[in-house]
Design a protein around this nucleic acid. Structure first.
Lengths: 134, 134
DNA sequence: CCGTATCCTTGATGATACTG
DNA sequence: CAGTATCATCAAGGATACGG
């Protein structure tokens, strides 16, 4: 390879052609938005509070995601050496800097989510029966 | 917030406590951003062009994602009954309405991605060896 | 309380081959 | 060309139990 491939793939490093791909991985991987939202809305919280607030998440997965967010600098973890132990999580400044982004997202949501719903209804009505694709 | 809830889960319908969760599912599920970006940047394209441009995606998955995006009204599919068949995909008005969102995302990226990298380096340097969590 | 360790299930993806 | 069908793989997530 490394030659002038005539009619093959374009000069893209796979999946990286999209410049926002890295941010998407960081901010929108599974459970990250609910966690960040919870921390942003309700402030510093302990592990169990978060666990309960997120409803269906398991402690294992919550730990994984919190570690990831801590490593990425979006969340700050504070350990209080007491008995019983107490750990608190809060959103970092970097994490807070995502607020306008989330706001934009929420605006788009209120403005367009119903359009998506209608598009789905239309599609399902059209493509339902024999479902001949033309 | 609800004070002193005895000892159970808060009044959240699971995973739905985050108001932007639905949009995230629609816009940021796997491969959707690269696809939308490619359609937005390079305009109307045929199936193979997209396939090649996205680099590593397989036709099967590309079809799945395109169907989803078409159903959600973010992408428009046009079938030209010729031999050989020709199908073109383009971004819809609804899809285009995501542009400012993507712009915000790109801005955050250029402004803060290096901070994430440094946070990761710091974390890895701290938590590397015996990795005692305190 | 705050997790970790283990096992297991499942949904997503890759590979390959084949139609209209 | 534009997919679909089928099979194999695989890692993320859930359930459960236990430890500091």
């Amino acid at each position: 390879m490394t030659s002038t491939t005539p009619a093959s793939r374009v000069d893209v490093d796979p999946e990286q052609a999209c410049p926002i791909a890295p941010v998407v991985d960081i901010v929108f991987s599974r459970w990250t938005t609910p966690i960040l939202w919870a921390l942003h809305e309700y402030g510093r919280q302990r592990f169990v509070e978060l666990d309960r607030r997120l409803g269906t998440i398991t402690p294992k997965v919550l730990t994984q995601r919190l570690r990831q967010l801590e490593r990425d600098g979006l969340v700050v973890r504070t350990y209080h050496p007491e008995v019983p132990p107490r750990v608190e999580y809060e959103i970092s400044d970097l994490g807070r800097s995502l607020a306008p982004l989330f706001a934009t997202l929420a605006e788009w949501s209120t403005a367009n989510l119903d359009k998506v719903d209608r598009a789905r209804d239309d599609y399902d009505a059209r493509e339902r029966p024999g479902a001949r694709r033309l």
